[in-house]
Simulated assay, not measured.
Amino acid sequence: MKLTFYTNPRSRGAIVRWMLEEVGAPYDTVVLDYGPPMKTPEHRALNPMGKVPVLVAGDQVVTEAAAICAFLADAFPAAGLAPPPARRGAYYRWLFFGAGPVEAAVTNQSLGVEVPEDRRGMVGYGSFDTMLATLEKAVSVAPYLAGDAFSAADVYTGSQIGWGLQFGTLPPTPALTAYWDRVKDRPARRRAAEIDGILTEG
C-alpha cells in the first residue's frame, strides 16, 4: 500500500510522523506551507478543511490525526500498535479521550474560554480540572494507556501530553511527567522529531 503523507512540521502532522515511524512502512512526504498551499482545490479535494495532516493510503484518504493513528495501527498489525480487537476498550477510550476532552479543554483554556459551572454538562470535558484529574489517573494505572504495551493511544494522547508539558498548557504534575518520560525517548519518536526538526529548519 503506497502511503503519501501531507504535513507541515509545525502542525499535528508531527503526531502522524511519529506514528509512521513506529509502523516502519515506507512513505512519501508532501510538506505544505500554511495559507494558500493548503487551500488549493487539489488539497481541499483530500481535506475540505484545508488542513494537514492528511494520509493517502492506496485509494483511501484519512484525515484527523487520531483517525490516522488508528488506521495505521490496523493497517500494519505486525507493528503491534493496537491490542487484539476484543481487548481494545482502554485503547479506544484513551485514544479518543485525547482527541476529544483533552484537546478541547486545553484549547479553551489557552483561549481564555471558561465554561460557566452551570453549563459544564454541555461540553465533553466538563471542566479543565476534571479532564486533568482523569488524564492523570489514566497514565497512572499502568505503564501505558492501553495497559502493559505501548500503542497508538500513546502516540496520539502522549503527544498531547508532551506538547502540553512543553508549552505550559498542561501542568507538570508528577503523573504526567513520569508518563512522558516513559515514552518520549522511543526511537521512532526521536526519528520523527529529527525529521520534522530538519524540515522546520529548512
Rank of each mutant, 00 (worst) to 15 (best):
A138N: 09
Q109D: 09
L32V: 08
P37L: 08
A67P: 03
G126K: 01
M19K: 08
A104D: 09
P174M: 10
G126D: 13
T173S: 15
E201S: 15
A45I: 02
A82D: 11
P77R: 07
D59A: 07
V106S: 06
G202E: 09
S110L: 15
F128L: 10
A133M: 06
R88C: 12
V56K: 02
E42H: 09
G158T: 07
V31D: 02
G168S: 02
G80F: 02
Y91C: 12
R93P: 04
A78W: 05
P116H: 11
T130M: 11
D28H: 13
G35A: 14
P83K: 08
A70T: 00
L132D: 02
A149Y: 08
A73H: 05
S159L: 10
Y27S: 00
A79S: 10
A66H: 06
A25W: 11
G121C: 03
Y179P: 02
R44K: 15
D59I: 00
R87W: 05
Y125V: 05
V54Y: 00
M131E: 03
T134V: 13
A178F: 08
T7W: 03
L170A: 01
Y144I: 08
R190C: 11
R93C: 11
G13V: 01
T107Q: 09
Y92A: 13
E201P: 04
M122H: 07
T7M: 11
P85W: 05
H43L: 05
E103F: 07
N108H: 15
V62D: 00
A104V: 12
T157M: 15
A65S: 15
A86P: 04
Y6H: 10
A82Q: 05
D185M: 07
A152N: 07
G164H: 05
M19W: 05
A142N: 12
A75H: 12
A75G: 01
Y125R: 00
A25F: 06
D129F: 06
M1T: 01
K2T: 02
K39S: 09
S151F: 13
E42M: 09
V30M: 08
K137I: 00
T200D: 11
L72C: 03
T169I: 08
A82F: 04
A78N: 05
R182V: 09
L72V: 02
V141R: 15
A99M: 12
Y156A: 10
A105D: 10
Y6V: 02
W94M: 08
L145G: 07
G89N: 14
D28E: 15
P83F: 03
A14C: 13
E201Y: 08
L20M: 11
Y144D: 07
F97D: 06
P9T: 00
T40N: 10
A75W: 04
L170G: 01
A149M: 13
G35P: 10
E103G: 10
G197T: 10
M122E: 15
A65H: 01
P48L: 08
P85N: 11
Y144C: 09
D181A: 15
E42K: 11
L132N: 03
A153M: 15
R44N: 03
